[in-house]
């Protein structure tokens, strides 16, 4: 059995306008020491999954285990092993950042002195030393977020769950967070995170689960997922909007499917991208279409994500 193991999770929220299927048979298998990213559009079920794995919500069907402990029956054992930070910063506004972290330390059963030492250390690591002694009420969104994240790291738990950890952080805070987290990963921590920044998942995750509508659509390394949407692609950008239809027709003639037009850019996956690029450029020249940019590039995780989660009726 995997270190984090979820089988056929189902979660249905009862709302005034009827039941909402947040999870619809979602399964995960994560090995110890892996860094795993959950990717998915808004409402895909990422937060719900994290809530179930951190014992905050109960699944309506299926089961999940963290380090062998069932998240419903052995919730207390699971809580001893995990550090968690939710999508929205949950810090006490009346307390200072330092007091918040000391409180978390005390509730992890640390001694008073150890809780204090640990809080000071984390405040330093998260570049919060200056605002540490002001009530959180008066701090910025990113500062609160960092206090919340620091709360997940108070006791070096072997498993970390971070729901959109870098949302709202400035580039330097983001880099600092990743330094802290990389350090933990080196020490063998298992990390499950969600993010909307695919580049981040690309660089940091050993494994990605793409989910939508409460199910796993695809899983693998970032390279696996990119490979699934095909090889190199040709991308040309026209200088004038008016020229777009003429050129896109020409590109579509070369490849009947898999042509994406976005803004003034046409992207197409083609069997012989270099040759195709030449032909498109020649075709543009003949038609007197001015090109802004043209080239061959590898598929990005964004391409894979969009291709996998493209829904009918939604662009």
């Amino acid at each position: 059995m995997s270190f984090i193991d979820a089988q056929e999770l189902r979660k249905i929220y009862q709302t005034r306008s009827g039941p909402v299927r947040a999870l619809d048979g979602l399964s995960l298998d994560i090995e110890q020491g892996q860094v795993v990213a959950l990717l998915g559009p808004n409402g895909a079920g990422k937060t719900t999954t994290v809530k179930i794995l951190t014992t905050l919500a109960r699944p309506d069907g299926g089961s999940a285990r963290v380090a062998g402990h069932d998240v419903v029956r052995d919730a207390a054992a699971v809580r001893r092993l995990i550090g968690a930070s939710g999508q929205y910063a949950a810090v006490d506004e009346d307390l200072t950042g330092r007091e918040n972290l000391e409180l978390v330390g005390r509730l992890y059963q640390l001694g008073r002195r150890e809780a204090r030492r640990r809080a000071a250390e984390l405040l330093e690591q998260f570049q919060l030393a200056e605002s540490a002694d002001r009530p959180v009420r008066g701090l910025s969104g990113g500062q609160r977020r960092r206090i919340d994240l620091a709360g997940a790291l108070v006791v070096d738990p072997p498993v970390l769950f971070l729901d959109e950890p870098t949302t709202g952080l400035d580039p330097s805070a983001r880099a600092a967070l990743w330094d802290v987290i990389r350090e933990r990963v080196h020490a063998g921590v298992t990390l499950l995170l969600t993010t909307q920044y695919l580049e981040e998942a690309d660089r940091l995750a050993d494994r990605i689960f793409v989910i939508d509508r409460g199910r796993v659509l695809a899983t693998g390394t970032a390279d696996d997922l990119k490979a699934r949407v095909g090889g190199l692609r040709v991308e040309v950008t026209v200088a004038n909007d008016d020229d777009l239809p003429r050129l896109s027709d020409a590109v579509a003639a070369l490849t009947p499917n898999d042509t994406v037009v976005h803004d003034r850019t046409i992207t197409a996956a083609l069997p012989d991208p270099a040759g195709a690029l030449l032909r498109i450029i020649r075709c543009a020249q003949d038609a007197g279409v001015e090109l802004h940019d043209a080239g061959v590039r590898r598929p990005t995780l964004d391409d894979a994500f969009l291709a996998l989660t493209r829904r009918e009726g939604v662009a």
Binding site: L56, G86, A90, V91, L107, Y108, D148
Partner: peptide, 13 residues
Amino acid sequence: SKGIVDRFRSLPM
């Protein structure tokens, strides 16, 4: 409603 109780509930307390 502010999620503070959820934070506490994910701790081994």
